[in-house]
Simulated assay, not measured.
Amino acid sequence: MSEGPLLVVRPVPVLRQFWLVGGIHSAGIALFVGFLALVVLKFGADAVTGSSGDTNLPFALVWAATASGVAFLALWAFHYKAFVRDRGATTYTIFADRIEAARDGSARPSLTVPLDRVVDVHSTAGPLLRPVGLATITVVADQPPGRSGPKGRLWVPFPNVPEPDEVCALIRSLIPASRRSA
């Protein structure tokens, strides 16, 4: 494990992912939070004031809209961190015997995939990644048996990889011939 890396790949953040996926996720969850806040506030205000009907509805609507807005901004900030900032600080390092991913910008890898367990590697590029020449590389590895049960398969995605065909070819060349799937 002391040899140098064969290839260091830095994923490319794509702002379209952040705007589209982050916006849709954030808006959907924020709407749910707002609806939940509306129901809780309306019934809570009715129980406290002893009134019924629509007398507490304006109060509940204002605070539910506020809760929804705050949830949207918090979730959008989280998605910015995940899709832009963290991706920019991530590196995938391919060695002769393993793939390491340092996802938080630190020198220590947060994920290691031993190549002697890898059975397949493939790349997929959706409509957000394909126009900019990126893809998500997925490495399929055998998971050793453990407390959770018998041996299974583990799919490890490496998103936003530039030049995915060359990276896949390198990984395939490092997989032991006896382990390659057809």
Rank of each mutant, 00 (worst) to 15 (best):
A77K: 03
G44S: 11
A64S: 07
V12N: 00
D116T: 08
G22F: 09
S51K: 12
P131C: 09
P176T: 03
V9Y: 08
A96R: 09
R172F: 04
A135E: 13
P145Q: 13
W63Q: 06
A102F: 08
S51G: 12
D54E: 05
T124P: 00
A30C: 06
D97T: 15
P144H: 05
R16V: 01
V48C: 10
R172V: 03
L154F: 08
I24M: 14
A65I: 13
L57C: 00
V39R: 06
E163P: 00
R103E: 07
P58L: 04
V161H: 04
W63D: 02
H25K: 11
D46A: 15
P150K: 15
I137A: 07
T124K: 12
G152I: 05
V12F: 03
S106Q: 10
G23Q: 11
S68A: 15
A182R: 14
L38E: 09
P157S: 10
P109E: 12
W19I: 13
Y80G: 03
T66L: 15
F78A: 11
G105V: 04
R16D: 03
S173Q: 10
G133C: 07
E166V: 05
P150T: 08
A77D: 01
S181G: 07
V119P: 02
A71K: 04
G44T: 07
V121F: 12
F32K: 02
V84M: 12
V14H: 03
D54Y: 14
S106R: 08
L111I: 07
T49E: 04
V62D: 06
L174W: 03
E3K: 14
R130A: 13
P58S: 09
I175A: 00
Y92I: 12
T55M: 10
S26Q: 10
V12C: 00
V119M: 11
D86E: 13
I99P: 01
R85D: 10
L134W: 02
Y80E: 01
A77E: 00
P145H: 06
